[in-house]
Write a protein that binds this DNA or RNA. Sequence first.
DNA 1: TCTTGCTTTAGAATCATTCTCATTCTAAGG
DNA 2: CCTTAGAATGAGAATGATTCTAAAGCAAGA
Lengths: 163, 163
Amino acid sequence: MAAPNNRPSPKPTGLDCRLAVLGADMRLTPHRREVFQVLAESTDHPTAYEVFNRVQDRSPGISLATVYNCLEHLTNHGLLRQVNLDRGQSRYCANLHEHVHFYCETCGKVLDALPSAEFDPAKFWSLPPGTKVARLDVAIHGACTTCAAKRAEPADATAACQG
Amino acid sequence: MAAPNNRPSPKPTGLDCRLAVLGADMRLTPHRREVFQVLAESTDHPTAYEVFNRVQDRSPGISLATVYNCLEHLTNHGLLRQVNLDRGQSRYCANLHEHVHFYCETCGKVLDALPSAEFDPAKFWSLPPGTKVARLDVAIHGACTTCAAKRAEPADATAACQG
DNA sequence: TCTTGCTTTAGAATCATTCTCATTCTAAGG
DNA sequence: CCTTAGAATGAGAATGATTCTAAAGCAAGA
């Protein structure tokens, strides 16, 4: 059953609705709610450790292991997306709309990029017949608006590295 | 510690040409050549450890650290591509043609998928104006021909998980 | 030959993540 | 309210991939 917690939220917010609907078979503990809430309020794709730091403001006693557990559960239940760019720490994202990630190689910022057109991977890349596509993981690497502008400035001679 | 470094390549093969042209400013040591050769002969996107094992057949004394060094250098000089699918070991790929990777979530196989049509990321995903795209990292997750066929068989009832 | 600097090596160190296990909490039944 | 089974939590250990360190090795130029 949808596990309405013992007493936490007096009125189900949009957030809780989402949690209730999508994670129907998951026990919604306060920690999980707060981990999710932190992600829902973030647009910067925080790492597990950053989530840990932010959740600590509300739940000072929470442990990093619990944050990892919560992130894993929420991800497994389709409430979060794990974002892996290169090697290094995983990042997490509560934006469940179909989107891809843009990674600024200069400042490290990660942006969501929404699809602006219909897109069928099988149309653009030749896969062996019979292959079944489950999901597409796209990371666009480059320079964000700010960094691209900075690099274009004539002030720095070393900027002439490449187009 | 037997390092037969005193012997440069006898005659430049196609492989060496490629190494010479692309890695112009890189010293081409025997170990680097062999690491590259192993990758050039592989189509299965081996991990660093798998490369290590294969290189050991030719250079029994090579260390894992050296393999990592070589992989890093070759990657930095544009002779190899590092492939990161989810978290876990990086894989390496000597196919420098524009392509993306298909990852079979059932058997773990990684296939190259060549573009079958012109493709402009900025056309399909809305990026802020001024953004500069350097490269696209696409991983198509799904089931390869063999695994998809197995799953479709009526023998296993649990296969009905999803379409 | 001597110097200088890159390469290689073994092992230690690092870092993110996962695991272990004792403890605590939750939901349901009495 | 009390009990109980099972899930969640926390602290710290363990893991595993990768990187770093320090000490040789080797190559090319002076």
